[in-house]
């Protein structure tokens, strides 16, 4: 059986809020290492990969591999019934028909119990190769969100061009063009504003802004975001969570003919 207790319901609320417009029905794969999810959007252009390691929970117990097939719209409806600061416990049997959620208020003596009916989901699972990326950019997640939002008003696509010490986001649209450049920036006083660009070779790739704007819904999960790029491979957008857990998005590039 599965029993996983989260100190704060907000983590799961934010994860589901961030991915539910991209993927609808997903298997949450539970085993002794934690709870994982991999799902592609309908067009097979973007992929969500979530890992909540067992250390994220306290306690965490899962004796067997259990796949919880959940409709994210339903999941969100139930998670909205939890206060951000509530303690959240997920429970399921070994061959479950439902997943149970218990929300406990740390301040009040209130316990809320919900069940969500599970579904059988036959999901395509992609093998993602370990990649040494040519460019890794770490930047404030809010900054990345703003860039994507601003440029999406002008164009459907953005070119991300990484070169030594600088990364440039460029778009060309019907009404005009836009370009935002960021340089390596490190401040002891405001480390949350740091920008770090690691580069082994220059990279230039074009991506759909519609998907990037969607990924940025995860900005509330982490103050910083990591963009990993190599020429001719999908972009990795990673939000790191506590205890080595993560929410990752992959996006296939737009490629010239």
């Amino acid at each position: 059986m599965l029993e996983a207790r989260l100190e704060q319901a907000s983590i799961l609320k934010k994860v589901v809020d961030a991915i539910k417009d991209l993927v609808q029905d997903c298997n949450f794969d539970c085993n002794d290492s934690g709870i994982a999810l991999q799902a592609m959007d309908n067009s097979h252009v973007a992929l969500v990969s979530m890992m909540l390691k067992s250390d994220t929970f306290s306690p965490f117990r899962c004796d067997r591999n259990i796949a919880l097939g959940i409709n994210l719209n339903s999941f969100q409806k139930v998670l909205r019934c939890a206060q951000n600061e509530d303690i959240l416990t997920l429970k399921a049997d070994d061959s479950p028909d439902v997943v149970s959620l218990v929300f406990e208020s740390s301040e009040q003596d209130r316990i809320s119990e919900y069940d969500i009916k599970l579904m059988d989901i036959d999901q395509e699972h992609l093998g993602i190769p370990d990649t040494e990326y040519a460019a890794t950019i770490t930047m404030p997640s809010g900054e990345f969100q703003r860039i994507c939002r601003d440029l999406s008003a002008l164009s459907e696509s953005v070119a991300i061009e990484a070169e030594k010490n600088a990364v440039k986001f460029v778009c060309n649209g019907d009404i005009g063009n836009g370009a935002i450049s960021l340089r390596n920036h490190s401040s002891v006083e405001k480390p949350e504003q740091n920008v770090n660009i690691e580069l082994s070779e220059p990279v230039a790739l074009t991506f759909s802004l519609k998907y990037l704007v969607n990924f940025c819904k995860a900005s509330g999960l982490s103050g910083s975001v990591k963009l990993c790029l190599s020429n001719e491979v999908p972009l990795l957008v990673e939000y790191e969570l506590a205890s080595n857990s993560y929410l990752r998005f992959y996006l296939a590039p737009k490629i010239g003919d």
């Binding site: 097979h44 992609l126 010239g256």
Partner: peptide
């Protein structure tokens, strides 16, 4: 204009 690729081109089915 460049065309949108899909992930199957890069990642193998498991």
């Amino acid at each position: 204009p460049p065309k949108q690729a899909t992930l199957g081109k890069f990642f193998g089915l498991q």
